[in-house]
Amino acid sequence: GWWLRGWSGGVGGGGAAFVADAVAAHRVFAVEVHHPVEVGADQETHLVGWLSKRLGKPLRAPRLAGKGYDLVGGRLLSDAQGPAAQLMYQDAAGRRITLYIRPASGAPDTSFRFAQDGNVQAFYWRDNGLAWAVTGDLDRVTLSAIAEEVYGALNS
């Protein structure tokens, strides 16, 4: 929590808790070899429909091939606010990034915020009734470009 001191702004009512959950989920699942996701990218239509239904908002799995990342799949998670979703992407070198998504209350806050915990960094924002976090063990500039790509894909 110390790395987010001073920010109590609200991605879904608690920005610090939200990004901490996103980072924790990334750390748990990004290293998995055999079971990194519940539903693979080969079932993307089912995955997106299922997660959309559980979160109560329409989702899309952004295309990140332009940044070198392909969808691995995703999973349903839970946090203190209720259901959450995680989409995982991987590049040719095996590096993984995750998108952590949960319903967000309140007015949109489309400005990106940044957090870092050790080697894991996250850019996060709230838009269209959802809170989003792009998380990975990447440098800040690279992760920022990916977050901008995600935001653009979701709002095109």
Rank of each mutant, 00 (worst) to 15 (best):
R126S: 10
T98W: 03
G118Q: 13
A133H: 05
A115F: 02
A104P: 09
N119I: 00
R95C: 01
R96L: 01
M88V: 15
V134Y: 00
W132K: 04
A80G: 15
W132R: 02
W125Y: 12
V134K: 00
L77A: 10
F112H: 05
G106W: 14
A85S: 15
D79F: 10
A122D: 05
D91K: 07
R113D: 06
Q121F: 03
I97Y: 00
W125A: 01
W132H: 12
I101W: 00
V120E: 03
Q90N: 06
V120G: 05
L87G: 08
F123D: 03
F123M: 05
R102H: 06
Q121N: 11
W132T: 08
P108V: 09
A133N: 07
A107E: 12
G82Q: 13
W132C: 07
D127L: 03
Y124P: 01
F112V: 05
V120A: 07
G82T: 05
Q90K: 14
A84R: 02
G106C: 13
D79G: 15
Q81D: 11
D79P: 11
L130V: 14
I101V: 15
I97N: 01
R102K: 11
W125M: 02
S111R: 11
D127Y: 03
S111N: 11
D91R: 03
Q121Y: 01
P103W: 07
Q116V: 09
M88G: 08
A84W: 06
N119P: 05
G106T: 13
G129P: 08
S111K: 08
Q86M: 14
A133E: 08
V134L: 07
G129N: 07
T98H: 07
I97D: 03
T110F: 08
S78G: 10
R96P: 03
Q121W: 04
M88H: 04
Q81Y: 10
A122I: 04
D127S: 11
A92Q: 10
M88A: 13
A80L: 14
P83E: 12
A131D: 05
T110N: 12
A122G: 07
A104Q: 12
Y100Q: 09
A107H: 08
A92S: 10
N128I: 14
A133D: 13
R126M: 06
Y124T: 07
R126I: 00
S105L: 12
G106Q: 12
R113M: 11
G82M: 10
V120L: 06
Q86L: 15
A115S: 11
A85V: 00
W125R: 07
A133I: 07
R95V: 00
A122Y: 05
R126D: 11
D117C: 04
S105P: 03
A122H: 09
S78W: 10
A104C: 14
G94S: 03
P103C: 03
